[in-house]
Amino acid sequence: MPSPSTLRRFTSQPARQVVLGALAGASLVGAVAGCAPSNVSAGTEGRAPSGSVPTTATSASAAGGSSVSHAYRDGTYSTDGHYTSPNGPETVGVTLTLKSGVVTDVQITEHPTSANTRLFQKHFASGIKDVVVGKKLDDLNVGVVAGSSLTGQGFNDAVSVIKGEAS
C-alpha cells in the first residue's frame, strides 16, 4: 500500500502530466490532453511513434496524399505502456489514430491489477471532449434532468425587476 502522501502526490497532478510521466512515448501521449501537436516529429520514419512495436496497425491509408514530411503513416496504432506504480509494475494500453501526422484520436485502455491501480488508471482515462453537442430533451428517454434552469421565484422576480428598470 502506498502511504497517503504518495497517493496524494500521485493522483493530484493533472491527468496529462500523470500520463506523460507514466508512459514511454511522451510526445504522443501529450495528445491525451487535447492539445495535439500539429504534427508528430519525434522518432524514426515508419516506426510506431511510441518507440515500441505496434501490436496492430489498421486502416492505414498512407498512399492517400501523405507527403514525405510526415514521419508516420496514417493508421491506428496500439501499444502498451509500462510504468512502476506504488503497487509494482503496471500496464496501460494506448491506441491512437494518426492522420497526416496529426493525432486525431487517443484511447487509453485500462489494465488494472489492483484497486489502487484501478483508481490511478481511471484517472488517466479522464476524457477530453472537443465540443459538447446538444440533443433535444424531448427526444431523450430520461427520468430526470440535471441542470440549473429551475430557479426560485425570489431570484427570478429580482431579475424581472432589474430588466424592467433597465428597459
Binding site: 487535447g34 481511471k122 482515462a125 479522464s126 476524457g127 477530453i128 471532449k129 472537443d130 465540443v131 459538447v132
Partner: peptide, 8 residues
C-alpha cells in the same frame, strides 16, 4: 469554449 473534460 465548448470543450469538456471529465471522468469516463
Amino acid at each position: 469554449d465548448g470543450h469538456a473534460e471529465g471522468s469516463p
